[in-house]
Computed example of a mutant assay.
Amino acid sequence: MADYIMKVRKKVGTMPLVVSVAGCLILDEQNRVLMQHRKDNHQWSHPGGAVEVGEAVEDTVKREVFEETSLRVQDLELFNIYSGDSQHYIYPNGDEVYFVNVIYISKKYEGTPTVDLDETSDLRFFELNSLPQMTPNNQTILDDLKKTILY
């Protein structure tokens, strides 16, 4: 989690927090989506993370994607904003969050996907019909992507 969230957690413990996050559905030329296998919860998800104090969500997406994948995303297109019960998550350490999740799509990026050893154990492009198991909050987002791309 971001430094701001870590500081808040020191004060409030594991109680539920509303956390603004931003992520990106990165699609390659075959409309496969880039997923990362996260070290914190051992689940697959799209790249993204917490918005820092004073940071624009578009800047969060670019920063988080670069930190987690070494890719520089371009031509960000707003996909959707997710909130409420579908974005409830409890981390393995007991920290509870309700994400306000701003999701973008990018089909244009520079670089080669490279695993960030601090947060990620694997990066892969997946066909939308054969996605790995992921947390329910990510599943909602990827289900919507499948409806948009496949139907």
Rank of each mutant, 00 (worst) to 15 (best):
Asp116Ser: 06
Phe126Lys: 10
Arg63Val: 13
Val115Ser: 14
Pro92Ala: 04
Glu119Tyr: 07
Thr69Phe: 03
Pro113Ser: 02
Leu117Glu: 09
Lys108Trp: 08
Asp122Asn: 15
Ser130Cys: 14
Ala56Thr: 07
Thr112Glu: 09
Arg72Thr: 11
Leu71Gln: 04
Tyr89Cys: 08
Asp59Gln: 14
Leu128Thr: 10
Ser86Ile: 08
Met134Ser: 15
Pro132Trp: 14
Ser86Val: 05
Asp59Arg: 13
Thr120Phe: 04
Glu110Ala: 05
Gly84Asp: 11
Glu127Pro: 13
Ser70Gly: 07
Glu64Cys: 12
Tyr89Phe: 13
Thr135Pro: 08
Pro92Ser: 09
Leu78Ile: 11
Ser70Ala: 10
Leu78His: 10
Gly94Ser: 08
Asn137Gln: 07
Glu96Gln: 09
Leu128Ser: 14
Gln74Asp: 12
Asp59Gly: 12
Gly94Ala: 02
Gln133Thr: 09
Leu128Val: 11
Thr120Glu: 07
Leu71Asn: 01
Leu128Arg: 10
Gly84Cys: 06
Gln133Met: 14
Ile90Ser: 06
Tyr98Ser: 00
Tyr109Asp: 04
Ser106Val: 02
Gln87Thr: 08
Val57Ile: 12
Tyr91Pro: 08
Tyr98Ala: 05
Ser86Pro: 07
Val102His: 04
Gln87Asp: 05
Lys62Thr: 13
Leu128His: 12
Thr120Ser: 09
Asn80Pro: 09
Thr112Ser: 03
Asn93Gly: 04
Lys62Pro: 13
Ser86Phe: 00
Leu76Glu: 09
Asp122Ala: 14
Asp118Ala: 07
Ser83Arg: 15
Pro113Val: 12
Met134Gly: 04
Ala56Ser: 06
Asp118Val: 13
Glu127Leu: 11
Val115Cys: 04
Gly94Val: 12
Ser86Gly: 09
Val61Phe: 00
Thr120Val: 15
Tyr104Leu: 10
Met134Ile: 05
Asp95Asn: 00
Ser86Asp: 11
Asn101Leu: 00
Glu77Met: 01
Thr135Ile: 01
Glu96Asn: 03
Leu128Phe: 14
Gly84Val: 11
Glu96Trp: 06
Asp116Phe: 01
Pro113Leu: 01
Ser121Tyr: 04
Tyr104Cys: 03
Asn80Tyr: 13
Tyr91Asn: 12
Asn101Asp: 01
Met134Arg: 05
Leu76Phe: 08
Pro113Thr: 03
Val65Cys: 02
Ser86Tyr: 04
Tyr82Val: 10
Phe66Glu: 08
Tyr89Glu: 03
Asn137Met: 08
Gln87Ser: 02
Arg63Met: 13
Glu119Trp: 12
Tyr104Ser: 02
Phe79Tyr: 01
Phe125Thr: 11
Asn129Lys: 15
Ser83Asp: 05
Val73Thr: 10
Asn93Lys: 11
Phe66Thr: 14
Asn129Thr: 03
Ser121Arg: 12
Arg72Lys: 11
Leu78Met: 13
Ser86Trp: 00
Glu127Asn: 15
Asn80Asp: 14
Asp75His: 05
Lys108Ser: 02
Glu58Gln: 07
Phe79Arg: 11
Asn101Arg: 03
Ser121Met: 13
Gly84Ser: 08
Ala56Gln: 08
Asp59Leu: 13
Thr135His: 00
Phe126Gln: 04
